[in-house]
């Protein structure tokens, strides 16, 4: 892993540590409060803070996960080189597209 990838992974880990805690806290609050899906969507719809939070969360995860996955694959399989790096860029793109699509869907629903 290059030093810049190392910095990117550690930096996004800091963001994820906060984001995951807020995310889990929100889930617990919503479930314990007995909110219905409609009531949850009512709170998220058009809520720019919600979109910015989950947008940041998604981008951080999309940077963080492929870097770690690349290291694991290099250690446990013989996969190396440009094909591996390309595949990890693909994983990052997939996470961004799926994650932002989900966040947008809840925002505009």
């Amino acid at each position: 892993m290059s030093p810049l990838l190392y910095v990117a992974q550690r930096g996004t880990a800091v963001i994820l540590a906060v984001a995951v805690a807020v995310h889990l806290g929100t889930i617990l609050y919503a479930v314990r409060g007995g909110l219905t899906a409609g009531e949850i969507l009512g709170r998220t719809q058009g809520n720019l803070a919600f979109l910015l939070f989950y947008g940041t969360f998604v981008v951080a995860a999309a940077i963080h996960a492929p870097i770690g996955l690349r290291s694991i694959l290099r250690e446990w399989t013989p996969w190396r080189g440009r094909s591996l790096d390309g595949a990890m860029l693909g994983v990052a793109a997939l996470l961004v597209v799926l994650g932002l699509r989900a966040a947008l869907a809840v925002y505009v629903a």
Binding site: S2, P3, L4, Y6, V7, R10
Partner: peptide
């Protein structure tokens, strides 16, 4: 070394 290589990479970037 991790700290120093990271600092240097950011400086070069």
């Amino acid at each position: 070394l991790k700290r120093e290589t990271a600092r240097t990479a950011l400086r070069r970037f």
